[in-house]
């Protein structure tokens, strides 16, 4: 046997694809999958949310609200109870056991958390000038519960983050990126959801107080304080001016009487420090 040495220039063991080209294909594929998943998730989350029993939601809420200090606020509780007492008898909201907490925070904001937990930031109580206005905010949050908006909001962002964790692992950079990206963008309600919650809140306000006074006060103050800001292109909330208009047209259409609103009770005023200069936020 004769040994004939010959150098082979071609290398079958290495693919010819350019690594950047491969990266583009793979990342493109990932993005496409993520997009399809996102769209499907959005539809299924909205469909599924209506079917989630309130019991399951309460269980979910217990795990979420652990991050907030759970000290129920008595004064706010009384105001919420008054609204709850005026709900129609067949309202699904009766299945919830609502809790309302006052959290020290300068923002004028309130949150609806899964499981019937309402969190009111002290900034909102400090700024509120009337019982009716505060009731409108609470009724608006109840509207989110009635429409299960708080679950729909979590559905998509939560689903995406869970999917990323399942695929890439809890500690991976991609999972962290996904959770930052999607939990942040999904952290608001849609404009439609806000409008629906406003409508629900207005009806409940009228049922409880007999008139629609104070319904637009909160937004009017937001407009006055934050009118100069223009971050509204991307905001998930309708512009407060639009909300005022919508509420007023609803009041006109339904012929709700508008009377003078009641000043804020002393029991709430004593709980907050009025010297704090509160910043007005629009996420209410």
């Amino acid at each position: 046997m004769k040994f004939t040495p010959k150098h082979i220039d071609e290398n079958v063991n290495v693919s010819k694809t350019h690594p950047l080209g491969e990266l583009a294909w793979l990342v493109g594929g990932m993005l496409l999958l993520a997009l399809v998943f996102y769209l499907v998730l959005g539809v299924t989350a909205d469909l599924a949310v209506a079917k989630i029993p309130i019991k399951a939601e309460v269980w979910l809420g217990e795990h979420f609200v652990a991050s907030f200090e759970a000290n129920e606020d008595e004064a706010l509780r009384r105001r919420l109870q008054r609204l709850l007492d005026n709900l129609p008898a067949d309202s699904p909201l009766h299945q919830y056991t609502f809790t309302v907490q006052l959290v020290k925070n300068e923002e004028a904001n309130a949150l609806a958390l899964p499981g019937g937990h309402i969190v009111v930031f002290s900034g909102l109580v400090e700024q509120a000038e009337s019982e009716n206005e505060l009731a409108m905010v609470l009724a608006h949050e109840l509207g989110h519960f009635a429409h299960r908006d708080h679950l729909k909001r979590l559905g998509r962002g939560l689903g995406l983050t869970v999917a990323a964790i399942l695929v890439f692992g809890e500690d991976s950079a991609i999972s962290r990126l996904m959770s930052n990206l999607f939990l942040a963008t999904e952290s608001g309600y849609s404009r439609q959801q806000e409008s629906d919650a406003d409508r629900f809140g207005l009806e409940l306000l009228v049922n409880s107080f007999g008139h629609a006074g104070g319904a637009t006060d909160f937004f009017a103050r937001v407009v006055k304080k934050a009118g100069r800001r223009v971050p509204y292109l991307l905001a998930s909330h309708p512009h407060p001016e639009d909300r005022i208009e919508e509420l007023q047209s609803l009041i006109r259409e339904n012929g709700y009487p508008v009377e003078k609103s009641a000043p804020l009770g002393d029991d709430l005023l004593s709980e907050t420090e009025p010297e704090q200069e509160a910043e007005t936020a629009v996420d209410q």
């Binding site: 290495v14 693919s15 990266l23 793979l26 990342v27 990932m30």
Partner: peptide, 18 residues
């Protein structure tokens, strides 16, 4: 990164061949 993405889609892990 290329290999991780490959883990997801399957196929030749070309990045490691060289």
């Amino acid at each position: 990164l290329l290999a991780i993405l490959r883990n997801f889609f399957g196929g030749r892990v070309k990045a490691y061949e060289t």
